[in-house]
């Protein structure tokens, strides 16, 4: 099963994840999921179905402090990956397309590897890891590109001409895809810096970090 990818890789790290880490991951994943859900609600109300395109960028903008504090408390390989997998599972169970599960495993795993290069302490590595991790939330928006196929199929079933709509979507597709991906990078960089600032200003002194 795909979920197990979180465990064996955790063994290569200097420290294996233990029950306290799992509980930390659960608590911070809950906060992360709430942020994603709120962003989904807000962007859907503001921009309709197309608002989903901006959802990962919004989530990345807001969830930086959650990510940074989790890393400051666990500092071991597997935490970022598990958070991504758990989010992907929740999205899947809530009725999102299975792509959310795939991106929820792949990108957080990459982010985890990058953050590990800096031993979960180097700020640049953490930022890079957060940018990659943020792409894990892009799974739910991928079906928007499937929608084109669904609409063309439905037009053809009714005997309508679909050439017009196909050409329209071709223009929109590449530009919006590039825009959505760029928005994720920008949002994640801003959110990550904000997270690091909050960490230094509030949590390091209070002894909440490890």
């Amino acid at each position: 099963m795909t979920q197990q990818s979180a465990l064996p890789t955790a063994q290569d790290a200097k420290r294996r994840l233990a029950v306290p880490d799992y509980i930390n991951i659960g608590v911070f994943s809950a906060l992360y999921f709430m942020i994603v859900a709120l962003c989904a609600l807000a962007s859907n109300i503001a921009f309709g179905v197309a608002g989903n395109l901006l959802l990962p960028a919004f989530a990345a903008l807001l969830a930086g402090p959650v990510f940074m504090l989790l890393n400051a408390r666990v500092r071991a390989f597997g935490a970022i990956t598990t958070m991504g997998v758990v989010l992907g599972l929740f999205l899947f169970v809530f009725g999102h397309f299975a792509t959310s599960l795939v991106t929820g495993i792949a990108f957080p795993l990459l982010g985890d590897l990058v953050a590990r290069l800096g031993a979960y302490r180097n700020k640049a590595a953490l930022l890079g890891g957060y940018v990659l991790f943020s792409f894990g939330c892009a799974g739910p928006i991928l079906p928007i590109w499937l929608m084109k196929g669904a609409y063309i199929a439905s037009l053809e079933r009714k005997g309508k001409d679909s050439a017009y709509i196909a050409s329209l979507f071709d223009h929109v597709n590449m530009a919006t895809f590039a825009g959505a991906m760029l928005a994720i990078v920008v949002g994640a960089l801003a959110g990550g810096v904000f997270g690091l600032v909050l960490l230094r200003r509030h949590f390091a002194k209070a002894g909440v970090t490890q």
């Binding site: 979920q3 979180a6 659960g26 598990t82 997998v85 599972l89």
Partner: peptide
Amino acid sequence: APDALVIPVVVM
């Protein structure tokens, strides 16, 4: 499912 997955889900 491994504990690494079950425990975070329960906690969430």
